[in-house]
Design a binder for these strands. Structure first.
Lengths: 106, 106
DNA sequence: TTGACATGCAACCTTTTAGTTGCATATAGA
DNA sequence: TCTATATGCAACTAAAAGGTTGCATGTCAA
């Protein structure tokens, strides 16, 4: 639905890293995820908020902690509905490109 | 290699639209691609430059025109090397998430 | 050669983004 | 209760992104 938020969320390397870490170990707290990113806790919280708004991360409170869980559904939806469109014409476009670049020398 | 440039290039809806149009009809000129985007020619040229820098679009001059060709390879590389990582644990993460969200009611 | 067309370049403006700091709130545990 | 821990909120700053305008360059066609 809101693919734009997902694309924008994936545009930042720190956020992709956070998703990677959650893929490796699900259910980490904010403090956990701060380890390894050279920025303040608040900055990481903002990134996680963006990921949460894009529905890439779901959260659950446990006591004073907020645990973060990866939601791969939007990524898969993008892969299926958007990126796969560029799979089909792949060979066509490549050969087309090559033919034009090589054949139409002026 | 430079996945970041590709992700950033894909983050803008106008640029995704440009890629869509090139997928439908390859080899369009700048003037062609300006049709349908409510912005100046120079703005479109900037977008195309970003797509070209990310290697998502290849260009070729024909006389006074610059023709733009879609290069789906970086998109496929991202789909294969990055997004597919979130395919494998999909069911696991989903069931895991659901179980935790439902089961750990305090 | 001249005028129209297609694009390139650069300065500038505005909004968004990514990060900071400071303080507030809430919970776990002694 | 008191303190340390974990997170939330808001104002602020710097840089990047997205867009504009104006003018320059190069090419086609009469």
């Amino acid at each position: 639905m809101d693919d734009d938020a997902v694309f924008k969320a994936l545009a930042d390397p720190s956020r992709r890293m956070l998703l990677d870490w959650l893929r490796e170990r699900n259910g980490q707290s904010l403090a956990d995820l701060c380890q390894g990113l050279a920025m303040s806790r608040q900055a990481v919280a903002k990134h996680l908020g963006i990921l949460e708004d894009a529905n890439l991360v779901a959260t659950r409170r446990r006591g004073r902690e907020k645990l973060h869980y990866l939601n791969p559904v939007p990524i898969n939806r993008i892969a299926e509905r958007w990126i796969s469109r560029f799979d089909q014409p792949r060979l066509d476009a490549l050969s087309n490109l090559k033919r034009r670049l090589e054949g139409e020398e002026s």
